[in-house]
C-alpha cells in the first residue's frame, strides 16, 4: 500500500513537473569532485570514522568511503563532508 502511494506521488510529481526528491522526501547528494560531499535531507548520522560515513536518509542510507573524512558542517537536514572521497553509494 505504502509503495503504491509513493508511486501515485511520483506520477503526480512527474506529471506536474515538480522535483521528485521534494515530492517524495528523498535525499539529494551533491558530490564536488573527489573532495566534498553534501547530503541534503538526511535523517541523522549513523556511523562516522575517518574512512567511512553513513548517514540515514529516507528509504535507506548514504555511505561515503574515503580518507581523512571530516564533517565540516552538520544541521538537521544537511551535512557537508570533506576529505578524499573514494566512493558514494546508496544502500536501501
Amino acid at each position: 500500500m505504502r509503495s503504491r502511494t509513493k508511486e501515485i506521488y511520483r506520477a503526480m510529481a512527474e506529471s506536474l513537473g515538480l522535483p521528485v526528491d521534494l515530492a517524495l522526501d528523498l535525499p539529494r547528494v551533491i558530490v564536488v569532485g573527489a573532495v566534498q560531499v553534501i547530503i541534503l535531507n538526511h535523517r541523522g548520522l549513523i556511523q562516522y570514522s575517518k574512512t567511512k560515513l553513513v548517514a540515514g536518509v529516507g528509504g535507506g542510507q548514504v555511505v561515503v568511503d574515503g580518507e581523512d573524512l571530516e564533517i565540516q558542517e552538520i544541521g538537521p537536514e544537511d551535512m557537508a563532508v570533506k576529505g578524499v572521497i573514494r566512493s558514494v553509494h546508496m544502500e536501501t
Binding site: 541523522g44 562516522y48 570514522s49 575517518k50 573524512l69 571530516e70 564533517i71 565540516q72 558542517e73 552538520i74 544541521g75 538537521p76
Partner: peptide, 13 residues
C-alpha cells in the same frame, strides 16, 4: 546535539 540546536562544526576522528 543537532536536534537540540547546538551548533557543531569541524567534526573529525
Amino acid at each position: 546535539c543537532v536536534s537540540s540546536g547546538i551548533p557543531v562544526s569541524g567534526i573529525r576522528e
